[in-house]
Design a protein around this nucleic acid. Structure first.
Lengths: 344, 344
DNA sequence: TCCGTAACTGCAAACGTTTGCAGCAGAAAT
DNA sequence: ATTTCTGCTGCAAACGTTTGCAGTTACGGA
């Protein structure tokens, strides 16, 4: 039903290749002819079929962006930054949500494969080997993860976790809990590794609770376990969990930061609105989105650009943390950092 | 580089049509042959090229979903519902963000056109005539808007606005402000119409302030104007603006709901977390997402299904509203409902 | 024995573009 | 006057599939 290149060619008595060139290489066609073609096209409502064009050129000018949960406010700034960067380069971004499900991730990569020029995998949960395998089907850039041989942009959340733990131990906390993230999360492993090391260095005890779904509910439902863990401070896998935890603790009559200090990670905009305002680790999400797009696009030209970019994080101190029981540096703290919890 | 159907055919000494059928109509090929083909395909890492397939079948099994601002928490529940519904029907959803920009909307429809089987337009800002024109290029379903001849699913926000105003007038408020939404928003016009009628019916004065960007900042920056309008209650275009407004009023030393009552629209999950918890109009976003997908898909079979589905809204009373100055029904209220503000 | 039928497979034309190559006119250079 | 060049246009082969049609084989029934 929609007009094709052939209809236009017929309508203005010219060969289809001339019509094609009018749209994809205008300088190759006589201005007068070009005018006639454009008029006919306009009149027939003709638009080049992107799919057919992609089939032969191999370029769609689209980029896929896969996120684990579009409802998590961590992602939108990254998505928006990627979109604006892509637009500058005359590309479009197609976003898909995987529902935190690795099998959906794989399926979606296949679905996107030939409709986009590359896919940005944001915090993917699938295995390294699967990612490598999929990368033979379509160019991939991973965000918040490292896969050998693939371009990656990671936000240095390990450093962030270290800063958070140092902040807490500096306030005198010695019994700290870590609410870990979902199983299979590279980020969660990094946080755990770095937080464990930082706690050990400060002679503090780190109790890992998890894995947990990275949502408000995930945090809220851990309130009771946090209470039983008898800690004075908590570092959560992300802000959403931290906020949920604060709600949950509140319901148990435990005050934040009066009784327990809480630190989040991500610095989502919501963190500035809650009471108390959340102390958290700010991650450069917008920069990550921009960088990922750039890497994907230049990766297209030069096939061996498999650089890994690391972006710095920083600690934002607000109102959800306060000095712990052993103020500057009291005795009675254990000398080992215990790591418990389910392996991810 | 990636294996094509021809490579597979050659590798197992069979015609390409047999390979094709192995994937798209397995029952038509001998089980033994099918096994060989699958083995070869597996070995070569072959995957049917969706773009090429779409070119000939005319079906991509993808659906586009356009939203104005992915960072607005109103959208994710809709997106997720649409995605899960689509997945059940063996379709995938590609989400795009238009940045509240009508020209980007048009461009994106073109970009999506032949890569998807249809596009869901969520609260589009473009003109009716442009939407109609684009609908000749790709099947469209509009959400939160009515365009003659196009299938639509609308959440009855007019009814919601009426409930909100009745709630406020019932509490004794007679001077009410409406923080309107962005220019070009059909929803904003509906709210204004219904709120105006409801105010008039209750002998209350409605002052329209706007248009405004539908964001937290949009609400926050109106705090001063709200104060100068000398109203005792405010209905905001959406929850985000309502929350921003509460923040802004707080900064001016005006308490909610003590000094001014505030009602939002949407019932985003955040509304349950703010202090005070927000009284708001709940919109059935998930149902809207599911319905839109269904309409698009059945629209594909039967071309003349241009039904318009209306979903009901309901008022959720929380803590941001309280009785106004003229308690049950005092005298001294004006008899006219004034509608001011810039036309949208 | 012959025929009809069922089950499978191959052939080739589509789908809507792009693009290297060749052809052609006219202008400029020799 | 001949050549070279430039600017434009047409031709046809691709891109990777699907699918109606026809051909082959084997088999059961008459």
């Amino acid at each position: 039903m929609p007009a094709t290149i052939r209809d236009v060619a017929r309508a203005c008595g010219v060969h289809i290749s001339t019509v094609s060139r009018t749209f994809s290489a205008p300088h190759l066609v006589n201005p007068e002819t070009r005018g006639r073609v454009l008029a006919c096209a306009e009149h027939l409502g003709y638009r080049p079929n992107k799919a057919a064009r992609a089939l032969i050129t191999g370029r769609t000018h689209n980029i896929g962006l896969m996120v684990a949960d579009i409802a998590n406010p961590f992602f939108p700034p990254l998505i928006k930054a990627a979109e604006s960067q892509a637009r500058h380069r005359d590309y479009h971004i197609f976003v898909t949500d995987t529902n935190e499900d690795p099998s959906v991730e794989e399926e979606l990569v296949h679905a996107l494969a030939k409709q986009v020029d590359g896919v940005l995998l944001c915090s993917p949960r699938m295995s390294n080997s699967l990612i490598e395998q999929l990368s033979r089907e379509v160019p991939l850039v991973v965000i918040n993860r490292q896969v050998t041989g693939l371009p990656a942009v990671v936000m240095d959340v390990g450093q962030g976790a270290r800063l958070a733990i140092e902040h807490l131990t500096g306030l005198g906390h010695r019994e700290i809990a870590l609410l870990s993230g979902p199983r299979g999360s590279w980020t969660s492993r990094e946080i755990r590794r770095a937080a464990g090391a930082a706690a050990r260095a400060a002679d503090a005890t780190l109790t890992v609770l998890g894995p947990n779904p990275p949502t408000e509910d995930g945090g809220q439902s851990m309130a009771d376990q946090v209470r039983r863990a008898e800690v004075t401070a908590v570092l959560a896998y992300n802000d959403l969990m931290a906020i949920g935890l604060i709600e949950g603790l509140d319901a148990l009559g435990i005050g934040v930061p009066k009784d327990i200090s809480v630190v989040g990670i991500d610095d989502i905009s919501l963190s500035r609105l809650t009471r108390p305002k959340l102390t958290t680790v700010a991650t450069p999400t917008a920069a990550a989105g921009r960088t990922a797009v750039d890497m994907l696009l230049q990766h297209g030209d030069d096939r061996r650009t498999t650089a890994q970019v690391t972006l710095q994080t920083e600690l934002v101190i607000r109102d959800s943390t306060s000095p712990g029981p052993h103020c500057p540096a009291g005795p009675g703290s254990t000398a080992t950092a215990a790591l418990e919890g389910v392996a991810s």
